[in-house]
Design a protein around this nucleic acid. Structure first.
Lengths: 102, 102
DNA sequence: ACGTTATTTAGCGTTAAGACTAAATATTAT
DNA sequence: ATAATATTTAGTCTTAACGCTAAATAACGT
């Protein structure tokens, strides 16, 4: 039984994405990934920030669970790749404020 | 000495706006204001939500300090008006992910 | 002046976010 | 098997967010 796009999940998606974008470090991670070609290893990402590595790991997990990043193992490192389409959720939300309300 | 648009303030603006948008109640306040014509009194806004009024007042304050709302007194009530332009900050930020990075 | 309506401020308790260090896991190399 | 590298998980701490109730302020009507 394939249910397609139930509205509850849609709401949770907004929630997850907006929450993920609320932290400056997470926004910087996204921007960095964006400009570095879309994917980087955890180590490369962690190296950019002053924070301890586990702190970055946690931020990465938040971004992944919001669907803004995907990750896969590559040897002994893990590569994170940005999913730019996921940002469409935010664009869609902003769209409500462009349509003039009758 | 009028300095125009110093970058630090710009950063704080992003911070404030993204933080404000992180809470579902605050997003709903914005959407409600948007569809109700752009401005409502505190009481009208508070009536929509199940929360106690002071809780809504606090959310309104967060939205105001992010520049997403402006308010002015009107008799004994206070009217909140949405500033849709402020959402351009988010659109601008999203813009970075559309430009293909050379 | 006094009461009523509309809203905010103060103060408190609970939950969750975000940071850290130390320990655990996974993968490759010797 | 052992060691080295890369990353995550566990556990703890501190601070900030969010909710509430009760009290304070502001403006209007009588």
């Amino acid at each position: 039984m394939a249910r397609k796009r139930e509205p509850k999940a849609r709401l949770d998606a907004y929630e997850a994405v907006f929450t993920a974008l609320a932290h400056p470090t997470r926004r910087r991670i996204l921007l960095t990934l964006n400009f570095e070609g879309g994917s980087m290893s955890a180590g490369e990402i962690a190296a950019i920030f002053e924070h301890a590595w586990p702190t970055i790991t946690r931020h990465l997990r938040v971004l992944v669970s919001a669907g803004l990043l995907h990750s896969e193992r590559d040897g002994r490192s893990r590569v994170y790749r940005i999913d730019r389409r996921r940002l469409d959720l935010v664009r869609d939300w902003l769209g409500w404020f462009s349509k003039d309300p009758g």
